[in-house]
């Protein structure tokens, strides 16, 4: 069967539209939304100006290359006790270059048994993802990793 005959045989009702992939260009001023909060301001508001200590106790798992900025898996686990007297009070996740840098804060208690928070975030562009752990003794531990966000391919 010739290609043209084949096409005629297809039971098509709708006209075909050529779909050109949308290309986005960086605008001068990107809208950031009503919750816009830069990362350094968000961090300072939580730590009260105290400097968080970069720590290997904070395990931050994010992909180095995100296959899709709309769903980026993030898992934070803190290697720290969860006893009544000494525990991780909160885990905060930030995306440094998102208009609103905050993603989620989980306020934990010893009843969690283990300090872990896992979710999926949106990343507008290639950027650092940061995990901050707030300890019951008032100290802060921090870890970050860069995530490369690629343009979507087919659909």
């Amino acid at each position: 069967m010739k290609r043209r005959d084949f096409l005629k045989n297809l039971s098509l009702s709708a006209a075909t539209l050529a779909v050109i992939p949308t290309m986005s260009f960086a605008a001068d001023e990107k809208p950031k939304g009503s919750n816009a909060l830069a990362y350094k301001d968000a961090l300072a508001a939580i730590t009260g100006g105290k400097t968080p200590e970069p720590s290997e106790k904070v395990s931050l798992k994010v992909p180095e290359i995100a296959e899709n900025g709309a769903v980026v898996p993030v898992t934070v686990e803190i290697d720290y006790p969860m006893t009544d007297s000494d525990y991780v009070k909160a885990i905060h996740i930030f995306a440094a270059k998102n208009g609103n840098s905050r993603c989620i804060d989980a306020h934990l208690s010893p009843a969690n048994g283990k300090a872990m928070l896992s979710t999926r975030v949106k990343l507008g562009e290639t950027q650092e993802v940061i995990a901050l752990a707030e300890l019951s003794n008032g100290n802060f531990l921090i870890a970050s990793q860069s995530v490369k966000v690629t343009i979507g391919g087919c659909g």
């Binding site: 939304g33 919750n35 709309a70 769903v71 980026v72 898992t75 995306a95 998102n98 609103n100 905050r102 993603c103 989620i104 804060d105 989980a106 306020h107 934990l108 208690s109 009843a111 969690n112 048994g113 283990k114 300090a115 872990m116 928070l117 896992s118 979710t119 999926r120 975030v121 949106k122």
Partner: peptide, 28 residues
């Protein structure tokens, strides 16, 4: 859990559509 709050969360629009959030809890 059984009337006792063990975790609270603040969430923003930067989480993915149809959010999934995982943590741990102690069975009691």
């Amino acid at each position: 859990y059984n009337g006792k709050v063990f975790t609270t969360m603040n969430i923003w629009e930067t989480l993915s559509v149809n959010p999934v959030i995982t943590t741990y809890m102690t069975i009691d």
